[in-house]
Every structure is written in structure tokens, then in C-alpha cells.
Write a protein that binds this DNA or RNA. Structure first.
Length: 776
DNA sequence: ATCGCTCGGGTTTTT
DNA sequence: CCCGAGCGAT
């Protein structure tokens, strides 16, 4: 049914020929190989709008899948911009939320109830911990993380307990034990009416395979399926798409045989595949043409994001990966500035470089939120944060230890889950003695035993507190908790309309005494925890405002599926800090790639794995291609890890960037060449590296500056200068920068900032409260 | 049952 | 360095 969209349509304005082809092509399968920054979201949204405009599809017949909620809402917004309200009826969501939506509708078909809850990796770990202990599997060397990883891997490959057991070697006690653990885990999950992350996809595939009439419903409904970031799909996700793009199978043969399979559009870039560790299979995209014979392939190579210098660096790096389709990004915008490189003596030194450059960019008119700092591992944030705080640069860490992973938030959420899904024993156990009610492990066990003996859930066993033969105090505490959960349940049932979720949460955290316990605690951290719980209450109110019809279950689902990048607020006036993984799909005017060292990038854990170095190179490539105008690459010669420092070597990938593209403010060679105070071993190992970097002659003056400029001594001690009064004209002494004169003081209270002209280290902004300074 | 101490172990990336 | 587990004291 190939009707054509007029070539004069405004949908095609400003698109290059390849983009137009990708928008206009009509056929059963289309692969858009989209290099970084080549306008793939534009192509996808215009393609969707074209389908609607030409009446080839109703909104409800379109399913667009992304990996993050952020990408999904961005896509929805842009489609809305093109077609207005018609966007409302479309499914634009992540793999996970699309599957939750399907599973909630169909749960009863296969023995779940629609009130199932979703276990995050923390829940999974907690459950496995109990199971491993019960089976005493730890003596065989089973650990929670390794077991969790193995189960996850199997589920991503669509293996279940039975299929694992069938091929397991029963002479190997480890395999027997693992099968047992896997079985226990699966049993506990279904008893709790819960799915873990991997189940959401895998169970949907099972559902479709076991119930063809259910599958047929979705196969008929979705006529156009579009998948973003296809290179990051794992086997289960691949299988899900395959199921959805099959011709619907009818119980009695011919009736619907006229229904064609849905058309499939996938967009991806194998050079940006960085999730192999999570089961992503690059073959899904590489072999797409074989999977879908007759598929059209469109290549998008023109880049609309970065300068040519940045792209040339990216091209040069990625071309070192063999076994890839050659692809060269190019741009019409010109060379732009050179990449700036810097080698610090320590991680702190490197962080100071970042802070200084950030401030320079800001002074030149760039907004903080257009800059971002990337790193390979989350632990690298600490040094960066410390310096950014001192320099009074507003920043935010995206991802990392997330709000919803904090213990107090998980506690509060466990209360909500206990109300919404009483079968979820893990949650009920979690709140059983939180806050302290005098219910210890012994009592918990006797409740569990009672539940088992009487064939009821743990939650229901709480109703029989009196029959457990416990002391009056404990019995009363259990009954009180049970009553509270009942009361909250009643409330959630009667307030399904508007104010339900915040009211239920408010009731639970106040009447349980949880909030009061935090407030009354002597631990100063608990004050912040109480604030976090109140923050969660604010989140529920916000949720209810946005979803007046939203139920408690909807709220829990939404929270379970938020990802790191999702909460990135583009308009916050802060520099964002994130891992290279989180950075994928984002772009910034200025990007700082930090810690470009061996053992970090490539990370030492993956350097030895097959395909590891290639994947790490792609990660580096992803980082480079996030930058629009300015790219900074930095490393340190020594890196602190678990207390002591160790020598760091420049990453092998650094040498893959043509020397003429980088202007080193301090190259690895320079950093060591003046090394009177550097340990000898540091210089000795550098041989063979120094020569690879050209030292621009015009920058020679940099190297002659006194060493104090980038002192590597940064004290770790916490200080509080709240009492220090400074005003313009004062002389001060800084532990790192030496002496200087205060030029101006701005800000109030704890946020007072001094602008200081140092005698040798240049001009800096310092947060007075924490800066290591004294008046002289 | 709870609190606070010490000791030992583990350290990649995350929908 | 930061965490959780385990232990002893209250």
C-alpha cells in the first residue's frame, strides 16, 4: 500500500536526500544506519508524522520504542509539535513500559494479577541474599552479584529454570546449586506477584508465544513499529520485536490471513553499541538484512551536531575497530576549535583543570547547562565534586546513587507496595521493623512459619498476631502495623480519583511513626533522610497533578521505570556530571572527557574480555560525539583508589586521535618532563609515550610557569569557614594556589563567593565556606 | 532486641 | 575508601 507523500510537504523541508528517503520509504522493513548527530530523531518523528498525515495509519496503530523515558518523551513532544493531539493515541515508550502496559492488561491470562510489582536490582539482590543464605550456597562460592548477573543473563537469552535445568550438568554441584537458586528465585517472584526487570520483556515474549490469540491482537493493532537504538537490543527484546512483526496467526485459519505483518523501522549505529554487558547483541543490527529479507537500508552520515575537528577525532578513533562497516561522519559547519588536552598530576589536579575551563567558558558566555563532564566510573565523581564545590560552580550528578535507591525512599516505597500488592512479601518484611517496633528476626521467622503452615501470605499472617504466642508488646506492634496497612488500603480504594497517592503515603509515613523516628534521631544524616521522604511526598503530589486518574499502582510503575538520564532537567543552570553510558543520546556545547587512562578507559575489567577493548573504544567514541563545539580531554598521572594512589598511564585510545587535532595545555610528555618531584617510576614508565604527543611551540610558555599553578596537593579535610569575613582588598593564602588578593565578594551566607586574583595561579572563584584559605 | 564497634572484602558500565 | 557482616555489650 505505497501511497506517496508529496515531495513538497513541509515535513521534508530542510532534510537531506538520505533523510528524505528514510522518511518516505514504504515497505515492510527499513534499517536506518544513523551516525551520531545525523538527525535520526528528526527522521523518525517526520516519518511518523508522514504516516499520519497521509492517512496510512491511525495514531493507535503506531508503536515507537526507545530505551529511556527521556528519549520517549522527547520524541512524543516532537511528534506533537508536528501533528498535534493525534500524538496522544500513539504508544511512544520504552521497551519496559510498553511491556508493563501489555502485562497489566494480560496478567490474568497466565496466573498473575494486574497489581504485580516490579523488582529493581536492589530488590532482586535482597531476595537472592535470603535464598543464598537459606541454601547455604555461599560455601560453594555463590555471591549475590554473580548469581543475579547469571540469572539476568539467562533471562535476556530467554532461558528459564526448566530450559536451564535441561541442559545443566548434574555432576557439577555448582550447576545443580545454581539451578536450585534460580528455581527458588523464580518461585519467590511469582509468589510475590512480582516481575524483575528482565522478566518484563521475557514474560511478554512467553505470553505471546503461549497465547497466539493474545499475540494476534497486538500484531493486528500495531501496523508500524519503530525501534530506536536498535544496536542495544538484547535477545529478548529482539524476540519481542520479531513476535510483534509476525503475521497474526488465526485459530481457524483464513479469517485474518489478509492481515499483513506490521512494518518495521529500526534505527541504530553499531559504533554506539555499548551495552554488551547487559546482553545487547550487536548482531541484531548487523544481521538485520538477513532477518528481514528485502529490507531497505539508508545511511545517514551527515552530522548536524559537531565541528569537523571533533568528528575527525571520532572517525579516527572508531576506525580502529575492525569488523565494522566503514562510515565517515562529516559536517558542513567547518573545523571549529581544536580539542584541548590536559594531563594532571592527580585526579584533583585534573578536576581543577575542568573547573577552570568551565569557568572560562562561562565567562565567555556559555551557560552551565550546556556543559557536561563525563567519566567512566561513578567513583570518579568525588574528586570532581570536591573541586566544583570549592570553585562555586553549580553542578548536578546525573544518575549515580539515585534518589529511588536511597534506603529511606525504598522504605517508604515498601509501605506503598505492601498496600498495593500485599503478596509482595519482600516489601512487607522490609517495613516489618522499620521504624523499630521491637520485631526482631526471631519474630519474623515465626510469622513466616505461621504463614507457610496455614497456606497464607506473610501479609495475612500479620492479622493473626495473637495466635503466634508472642509477648504482648510485640503482638500489639504487629496488629498495629496490620491495621495501618488495612487503613491505607481502604483509603487508596476510596480515593481513586484525585488525591489518593499522596494521602496514602502521608498516612503511612506519619502513622507508622517512620517520619517521626527519623526526625527524632540523633544521627545528623537522618535529618536529610526525613527531608528525602518529604521530597517523595512532593513527588507523589506532582504525579497526581499530572495524572489525576493515576492509581497507586501507576505511580509505583512509573517510579520503577525511571532511568538515570530521565531526570535531567535541561534548564537547570548546572553543569552535568555523568558516566559515559548515561551520556549516550545526549549532546552538549562543551564536553569534558575525564580519566582517559589505561585501566579506566578501557576499564581494567573489560580489557581482557573478548570484544572488551572494542566496546570501550565505542564508549570513547560516544563521548567524543556528544560535543557540539568544544571538546576537552583530560587524564591524570596518578589516580587515588581505595585510599592509596597508583600510577596511571595514558589510554591507548589517546594516540588514535591525530596529533594535529589536539592542543595540549599539558601533554602526558610535558607533565613528566619537569618531574623533579615526581617518583622515578612514573618517568620510567612513560618512555614511548612522550614522543607521541607534539608540544605546540606556541604553547611553550605554559610549560615554563611555576609549578605551583597546578599543585597536586589538595587537602581532603572538611573545613568550615562560615565565620571568615572577607572583603575586596583582603590578602589571603590558599593551600593550593598560594597568596592572592580578594577582588570581590558576592552571595549570601553559606554561598558567599570570593573572586580572588592569585599572584601566580591566576584568577579563581572560591566558595568561601569550604575553600582551604586563610586571611593574612 | 538494639546499638555500636571492628574487621574484612570489593570495587564497570544500567534499562 | 566505603559497605556490610558479625560480634559483644547493654
Amino acid at each position: 500500500m505505497s501511497s506517496t507523500v508529496e515531495t513538497s510537504s513541509p515535513l521534508l523541508d530542510g532534510l537531506n536526500p538520505q533523510q528524505r528517503e528514510a522518511v518516505l520509504y514504504r515497505g515492510h522493513a527499513l534499517l536506518i544506519v544513523a551516525g551520531a548527530g545525523s538527525g535520526k530523531t528528526r527522521v523518525l518523528t517526520h516519518r511518523i508524522a508522514g504516516l499520519l498525515e497521509s492517512r496510512e495509519a491511525w495514531p493507535s496503530q503506531i508503536l515507537a520504542i526507545t530505551f529511556t523515558n527521556k528519549a520517549a518523551s522527547e520524541m512524543r513532544e516532537r511528534v506533537q509539535h508536528l501533528v498535534g493531539r493525534a500524538a496522544d493515541g500513539m504508544w511512544i515508550s520504552t521497551f519496559h513500559s510498553a511491556c508493563v502496559r501489555i502485562l497489566r492488561r494480560e496478567a490474568e491470562q497466565f496466573g498473575y494479577s494486574k497489581s504485580f510489582t516490579i523488582y529493581d536490582s536492589g530488590d532482586t539482590r535482597a531476595l537472592l541474599k535470603r535464598i543464598i543464605k537459606q541454601r547455604e550456597a555461599d560455601v560453594l562460592g555463590f555471591t549475590v552479584p554473580s548469581t543475579a548477573a547469571k540469572i539476568s543473563k539467562l533471562k535476556n537469552e530467554l532461558a528459564d529454570v526448566d530450559s536451564y535445568a535441561r541442559q545443566a550438568n548434574f555432576n557439577d554441584p555448582n550447576e545443580v546449586m545454581f539451578a536450585q537458586l534460580f528455581r527458588d528465585y523464580s518461585r519467590e517472584l511469582s509468589a510475590a506477584n512480582a516481575f524483575d526487570f528482565d522478566d518484563l520483556i521475557a514474560q511478554t515474549v512467553y505470553l505471546f508465544r503461549a497465547f497466539p490469540h493474545v499475540a494476534a491482537e497486538y500484531q493486528k493493532r500495531f501496523r508500524h513499529i519503530l525501534v530506536d537504538e536498535y544496536q542495544d537490543t538484547n535477545h529478548a527484546q529482539y524476540a519481542l520485536i520479531r513476535e510483534l512483526t509476525k503475521a497474526p496467526e488465526m485459530p481457524d485459519g483464513e479469517l485474518f490471513s489478509a492481515v499483513q505483518p506490521a512494518s518495521l523501522t529500526v534505527v541504530g549505529d553499531s559504533d554506539q553499541s555499548i551495552y554488551a554487558f547487559r546482553g545487547a547483541d550487536i548482531r541484531n543490527i548487523v544481521e538485520f538484512e538477513r532477518d528481514y529479507p528485502g529490507a531497505r537500508v539508508v545511511l545517514l552520515e551527515q552530522n548536524y551536531r559537531s565541528t569537523q575537528n571533533i568528528l575527525s577525532a571520532a572517525n579516527a578513533v572508531i576506525s580502529n575497530n575492525f569488523d565494522r562497516k566503514d562510515k565517515k561522519l562529516w559536517t558542513a559547519v567547518g573545523d571549529g576549535e581544536k580539542i584541548v588536552g590536559y594531563t594532571g598530576y592527580t585526579g584533583h589536579d585534573e578536576a581543577q583543570f575542568v573547573a577552570d575551563e568551565v569557568q572560562k567558558l562561562r565567562d565567555a558566555g556559555m551557560a552551565y547547562h550546556d556543559m557536561s563532564v563525563f567519566y567512566r566510573t561513578n567513583s570518579q565523581t568525588r574528586a570532581l565534586e570536591e573541586i566544583l564545590i570549592r570553585s562555586a560552580i553549580p553542578y548536578r550528578v546525573v544518575g549515580g546513587t539515585k534518589f529511588y535507591e536511597r534506603a529511606e525512599i525504598k522504605d517508604a516505597m515498601a509501605y506503598l507496595v505492601s498496600v498495593a500488592n500485599p503478596a509482595d512479601t519482600l516489601s512487607v518484611r522490609r517495613i516489618l521493623n522499620t521504624p523499630k517496633r521491637g520485631i526482631g528476626p526471631a519474630t519474623e521467622t515465626s510469622i513466616a512459619t505461621f504463614a507457610e503452615n496455614n497456606g497464607m501470605t506473610f501479609r495475612d499472617a500479620l492479622r493473626y498476631a495473637a495466635e503466634l504466642g508472642l509477648g504482648p508488646k510485640v503482638t500489639g506492634a504487629i496488629a498495629e502495623l496490620s491495621d495501618l496497612l488495612d487503613e491505607a488500603y481502604e483509603l487508596s480504594e476510596t480515593r481513586r480519583d484525585g488525591s489518593g497517592v499522596p494521602e496514602v503515603l502521608g498516612l503511612l509515613i506519619t502513622k507508622s511513626g517512620y517520619l517521626d523516628a527519623l526526625r527524632a534521631s540523633r544521627d545528623p544524616q537522618d535529618e536529610a533522610r526525613a527531608e528525602n521522604v518529604e521530597e517523595l511526598l512532593a513527588v507523589t503530589k506532582e504525579f497526581q497533578r499530572n495524572n489525576p486518574e493515576g492509581t497507586l499502582l501507576d505511580f509505583l510503575t512509573e517510579v520503577s521505570l525511571v532511568a538515570a538520564a530521565d531526570d535531567l532537567d535541561d534548564r537547570s543552570g548546572s553543569v552535568s556530571l555523568m558516566t559515559l553510558h548515561t551520556a549516550k543520546g545526549l549532546e552538549f556545547d562543551a564536553v569534558f572527557l575525564t580519566g582517559v587512562e589505561e585501566d579506566l578507559l578501557p576499564h581494567r575489567m573489560s580489557a581482557g574480555e573478548p570484544g572488551g577493548p572494542a566496546e570501550e573504544r565505542r564508549l570513547f567514541y560516544v563521548g567524543i560525539t556528544r560535543a557540539r563545539k568544544r571538546l576537552f580531554i583530560s587524564l591524570a598521572m596518578t589516580r587515588a583508589q581505595y585510599g592509596d594512589v597508583s600510577v596511571a598511564l595514558p589510554s591507548r585510545y589517546l594516540q588514535e586521535i591525530p596529533a594535529e587535532l589536539i592542543e595540549w595545555k599539558q601533554s602526558p610528555g610535558m607533565a613528566t618532563s619537569r618531574g623533579g618531584t615526581q617518583p622515578r617510576a612514573l618517568n620510567a614508565r612513560r618512555d614511548g609515550y612522550g614522543g607521541a604527543y607534539s608540544i605546540p611551540a606556541s604553547r611553550g610558555s605554559q610549560a615554563n610557569k611555576p609549578k605551583t599553578e597546578w599543585s597536586n596537593r589538595v587537602t581532603g579535610q572538611v573545613r568550615d569557614n562560615s565565620a571568615l569575613v572577607l572583603e575586596a582588598g583582603d590578602r589571603i593564602k590558599h593551600t593550593d594556589f598560594g597568596e592572592g588578593r580578594v577582588m570581590a565578594v558576592t552571595g549570601e551566607g553559606a554561598k558567599r563567593i570570593a573572586e580572588v586574583q592569585f599572584d601566580t595561579a591566576g584568577r579563581k572563584r572560591l566558595l568561601i565556606k569550604v575553600a582551604p584559605i586563610e586571611k593574612i
